[in-house]
């Protein structure tokens, strides 16, 4: 996604919905992910099963393509719920929306809801992610 299509966090308010994003954790990506995190579980290697945290990482990446964060933004908390397994052939759709934006002095707390569905429209992952951002005037 082009940089100019990112939304400044200042423009975001509770209720804002980001456009849905299609994605897939293909075999090459899953394998690269397993290597990076040094995951050795037999569940994942050569089985086509995608580690749920790889899905979460991809969803966070998609989210970051939609938002322009100021320097100094900090990822402060994360909730994730894995509702169904994901395979490397699954086509996923990620939905995200702002649930809370709260001013705290010179900082701003931004919380975003995440919902990911597979091609059968089964929910595979839900979550909430929160960032503390320095206010930029």
């Amino acid at each position: 996604m082009a940089e100019q299509r990112k939304v400044e966090y200042r423009q975001l308010d509770a209720g804002y919905q980001f456009p849905p994003s299609g994605c897939q954790v293909d075999a090459a990506t899953a394998s690269a992910y397993l290597g990076v995190v040094e995951e050795t579980s037999h569940l994942y290697w050569g089985t086509g099963l995608v580690p749920p945290m790889a899905v979460a990482a991809l969803v966070m990446a998609l989210l970051s393509e939609h938002i322009s964060f100021p320097a100094g933004a900090i990822h402060v908390s994360q909730e994730l719920e894995f509702n169904n397994t994901v395979s490397t052939s699954d086509i996923l759709t990620s939905h995200a929306g702002v649930v809370r934006k709260q001013d705290r002095g010179k900082l701003c707390l931004l919380t975003i809801d995440l919902n990911v569905f597979n091609q059968a429209e089964k929910e595979v992952l839900t979550g909430k992610t929160s960032f503390v951002l320095p206010k930029v005037e």
Binding site: V36, V37, E39, S41, L43, L49, P51, P52, M53, A56, A57, M60, I74, H75, V76, S77, Q78, E79, L80, E81, F82, N83, N84, T85
Partner: peptide, 29 residues
């Protein structure tokens, strides 16, 4: 999220498929 993956890895080792298909994490960095 890289460091959080280590917790998920620990949970995978302990609970295998149950974690992958029905697990939940609530954490603070």
């Amino acid at each position: 999220m890289l460091i959080l993956a280590y917790i998920s890895q620990m949970m995978t080792a302990a609970f295998e498929e149950s974690w992958v298909s029905d697990g939940k994490l609530i954490v603070r960095f």
